[in-house]
Simulated scan of single mutants.
Amino acid sequence: MDEHGPLCVGIDPHASLLEAWGLPDTAAGVRDFGLRVVEALGGKVAAVKPQAAFFERHGSRGLAALEDVLAASAAAGTLTIVDAKRGDIGSTMGAYADAYLRDGSPLAGDALTVSPYLGFGSLAPAVELAAATGRGLFVLCLTSNKEGAEVQHARSLPDAGGHLGASVASVMAAHAAVLNAGAEPMGSVGLVVGATVGDAARATGTDLVAVNGPLLAPGVGAQGAGARELSTAFGDARRTVLASSSRGVLAAGPDAESLVRAARAAATEATAALRS
């Protein structure tokens, strides 16, 4: 982030983007799409974030394409966040962790998005393996979809005095803060917090500064959030925000130079908004 700007570029081979790039909606098409993004932006952005679903929809060949994109990113020296949002319990969560966080796994990136809504403790296999292998996690916390508030803003039942407990979002942030305590410059357990969630952190009592980890933020810049919105959403935690942009950059493709210009513009815009 210090070297390239606080920008993560999503690799989301939507059918419409494949068509715009002149590529077929096939496993070969998503592979070509992902590799072109990496070839153009590898070594030029803080991270790339392949969305696993768009590869998985093409079956085993799609997963092989994801493996190739991750390998190419590693060869280019660019960090990868596998956006798979995995979350389960016990041995099943352990198997997900093994697939996406184990050294030697072809599906392992540098970080993985995970869902904590079976309880933060259910993520223990992923937390432990990520720590053991030097990888990171981004835990869903305050997402920008309107349905997210149903769970994320919910509070525990009233106590004997009638006082509501902590919100779900604040509990997830507090768990991350414990895992990141004392880490410099920040810990490896981050949160996903939408840049357009407004004052949701304040309203839910979610202390983003105390998290001391990276905050992956979809929605910065062209997607709707400028300096004012970021100040409201993140406050003093803005220094740890990694802005995520997908279509805003990818729409400039398939020309490599156009992708680079779009990514640089997005990084500059994000830096200005987050540092203001």
Rank of each mutant, 00 (worst) to 15 (best):
Y117V: 13
A132T: 04
A166C: 05
G213N: 03
G182E: 06
M172G: 03
R228Q: 15
G187F: 08
D159R: 10
E128S: 12
A132G: 14
A174C: 08
V192D: 07
A222Q: 08
A217H: 09
N180A: 06
G165I: 09
V220Y: 04
G187I: 06
L191Q: 00
G119P: 10
E147F: 07
V211A: 13
H175L: 14
L208M: 12
A131G: 13
L137F: 15
V139N: 08
H163W: 02
E128A: 15
A169G: 12
H163T: 07
S170F: 03
F138D: 01
T133P: 02
A222I: 10
V139W: 09
L118V: 14
L215D: 02
V197H: 14
S188E: 01
V197K: 07
G190S: 14
A131T: 04
L157T: 12
A132R: 08
E229V: 07
A131K: 00
S188F: 01
G182M: 08
P218E: 12
E147C: 03
E150R: 10
T232Q: 14
R228H: 12
T232W: 04
V168T: 13
L208G: 03
N212I: 15
A132K: 03
A225I: 11
A154S: 14
L179I: 01
G136L: 05
P185H: 05
L123R: 09
V171K: 05
G198L: 04
A227H: 14
A130R: 00
K146F: 10
